[in-house]
């Protein structure tokens, strides 16, 4: 896939190929591609002149760097204690119903991936979720569905 090669080359030429830039490079590729494919990881390794295993090791360590295909929009609902107590299960069910997928899955049209994540720092306003970088708090089933509509 020459596009990926070009994308990686462009990003690396901006950040520089120093080892400390690996994380920003992985983040930038993820921003464009939604996930890090084997091809992307290989190209990054090549551009930075380090081993593929090294790049994969770093990529697979971080929750926000996905190494499996993801939809255009990633929903991350908080499952940690305060959001759990505030009723995140109800929100999960509402989103599953709306998107007709289960938690952890991607819609067939590739528009959404629905994931659970650990504490996102909105414990006083749970249940909370992220869609991409945007935060939605004090969710009800209706509010969660309305939030999804913004991306449809």
């Amino acid at each position: 896939m020459p596009q990926i090669e070009e994308l990686v080359r462009n990003i690396v030429s901006k950040t520089g190929a120093d080892r400390e830039n690996l994380l920003p490079i992985l983040q930038e590729v993820t921003r464009h591609e939604r996930y890090l494919s084997e091809e992307a990881l290989t190209q990054i390794a090549k551009a930075m002149d380090i081993s593929c295993a090294e790049v994969y090791g770093v990529a697979s360590f971080y929750t926000f760097l996905d190494t499996v295909p993801r939809g255009q929009n990633i929903i991350r609902i908080c499952k940690t204690i305060s959001c759990y107590m505030a009723g995140k299960d109800k929100i999960v069910r509402a989103i599953e119903k709306k998107l007709r997928i289960k938690l952890g899955e991607t819609t067939p049209d590739n528009r959404f991936t629905f994931l659970a994540t650990n504490c996102i720092g909105w414990c006083h306003k749970g249940p909370a979720m992220l869609i991409n970088d945007k935060v939605y708090t004090e969710l009800t089933a209706e509010k969660a569905v309305a939030a999804l509509e913004e991306y449809l």
């Binding site: 400390e20 360590f61 971080y62 929750t63 926000f64 650990n118």
Partner: peptide, 18 residues
């Protein structure tokens, strides 16, 4: 990039070093 352990100062340093 989403890792609780990176709040530990030396893990944070390694993360900063890529």
């Amino acid at each position: 990039s989403g890792a609780y352990v990176c709040g530990e100062e030396t893990a944070l340093l390694d993360s900063m070093e890529g």
